[in-house]
Design a binder for these strands. Sequence first.
DNA 1: GTGAAAGCGCTAACAG
DNA 2: CTGTTAGCGCTTTCAC
Lengths: 340, 340
Amino acid sequence: MPGIQAVAELAGVSTATVSRALSGKPNVSAATRDAVLAAAAELGYVVSSSASSLATGRNRNIGVVVPFLTRWFYASVLEGAESALLSHGYDLTLYNLAGGGDERRAVFEEFLLRKRVDAVIAISLELTPSELSGLLGMGKPIVGVGGPLPGVRTLSIDDVEVAQLATEHLLQLGHTSIGHIGGTRDFELDFHLPTNRRIGYESALEAWGIPVNPALFRAADFTIEGGYEAAKQLLGSPRERPTAIFAASDEMAIGTILAARDMGLHVPDDVSVIGVDDHELSNFFGLTTVAQFPELQGRMAAEILLDQLQPGTRTLGSLNTALPFELLVRSSTARLGARR
Amino acid sequence: MPGIQAVAELAGVSTATVSRALSGKPNVSAATRDAVLAAAAELGYVVSSSASSLATGRNRNIGVVVPFLTRWFYASVLEGAESALLSHGYDLTLYNLAGGGDERRAVFEEFLLRKRVDAVIAISLELTPSELSGLLGMGKPIVGVGGPLPGVRTLSIDDVEVAQLATEHLLQLGHTSIGHIGGTRDFELDFHLPTNRRIGYESALEAWGIPVNPALFRAADFTIEGGYEAAKQLLGSPRERPTAIFAASDEMAIGTILAARDMGLHVPDDVSVIGVDDHELSNFFGLTTVAQFPELQGRMAAEILLDQLQPGTRTLGSLNTALPFELLVRSSTARLGARR
DNA sequence: GTGAAAGCGCTAACAG
DNA sequence: CTGTTAGCGCTTTCAC
């Protein structure tokens, strides 16, 4: 474990020069720089990040807080953030809240405050006022992905718009009896996402002059299984079976497709299905969806933070950045009544 | 951002005493300890991890390297590790190798050597000799999950045994024409896992006096989609359609179930299917499987490391620890020819 | 049981 | 362009 001193001696310069050469500072002659680089390589020298952090006050490390790890969406955002950070020489320390209340408290009251991270990315988190003020109190940059955190820079898609788009796709195909599978009111991990998607769905219907029928809504938990159960209820109704279903997530939409099949219904001939996300399985199931790009979202969050950590930059931009989304038509939706 | 000094002044003691009191050292009187704790709480004091690391040489931070994030198995191991580390006051810094060669090199040649982590957990990684020697050269504890890293403490299930168990379950049900969907030879992320499972499958057949038929094997990539494609080939064969299929992962097994359905075959009446993992979707699909417990595996890896970081402990134990697994019979397997 | 003081390994003025 | 010199904030002997 050679230190900066060893490198300095080998290269025949002072430690200050080594430090400058290694961190790419401008005022070092090419010759000395090469000598230092060579010496460092020869000794296999690597800076001690704690010493460096202590001296500079910067950690080159960003904390990322996620509500789940085993859900495709969060894993993807994380993946995007990790790779962006890595390529800028930053580490990512991970905090997962899936464990429940106790872990959550620990993360917010101890871990994040330890001065180990330079900034934090909060993915799809609804924070309590005290959690939020704790974070803000650190005076460190924060960005949220997936929903407006009061007073925090956030990246999110316009859920109302997304839902409108999905619903309009169905309307345009001639459907008028459109079911919706959304989140439960208390599924609060993701902000008002469920509510917003429901609002979008309803407003699209209304815009087309179609009354909203509460019997056509079912709540589920955003999983395949949950979607399956909800879809069975919707599709099993003897009176008001919808000819199309808009599920608030692809996983629920896939559950819907599976439910339809199990009931002997053909997708899309008997029922059209559309989701949101573009989950990794969606292509396989031929699911029409409104794609969002979680990996990109993670990457963007990281880059915004990195930018904000550059001394010069103070351009906060708008507090809320809209994320891209896109209708992806596959084979789970079709014109009403069009038998193949 | 109060420092230890501020706390010391408020409590009317020296910084040394504050340090002792806060880190639970024995030689502090109850009275002073309380005073210090109160002062720290009042100021909202939190240690600077970099200063603390620099002084002690310990980081309370463990690096975890994974090949993927978006696969249920890896995410689950990670989740287990994270929660175990968190509960011991450790941070986890995440390195994902999904990005490809360049990221990989960076992780092994720069990031992990930065003296930022006290130990590393390598999940299902096949390391090159130079990567391995780099890691070992740090002199830090390492544990691998999922396959024997030469010279490294490893946790893994006995893949041969697992495959034998699965195959025997099918044999016992009267099947003699048993297909196998395994990994490709060059799918080397997971060691010899595919090979070992194939060996177990073949040896079980042989033990029952059934010749191994190479036409009954198909390679796939461990995804639902890959399993689907492979299963279609197997089940579409006009001459040798197997009556049962053992897939080397649950995701491939689920693909198999879906393929069977699409071909109008009933599971398990027409074909029995068994997988390995107990994936989160397996219960939903009624998949019989040999369960392994990734979360537990992550937790165990973390605890072994934590243990090894305790000054006293030098009990390395055996180099390779066997992980538990368990046959979980659901509704995708049935006696041959037993129509319901 | 508690304090004084010497670093941990690096970086950032400040001189030169 | 390069060296000298203070610290960064904490932990840990070593005295008392």
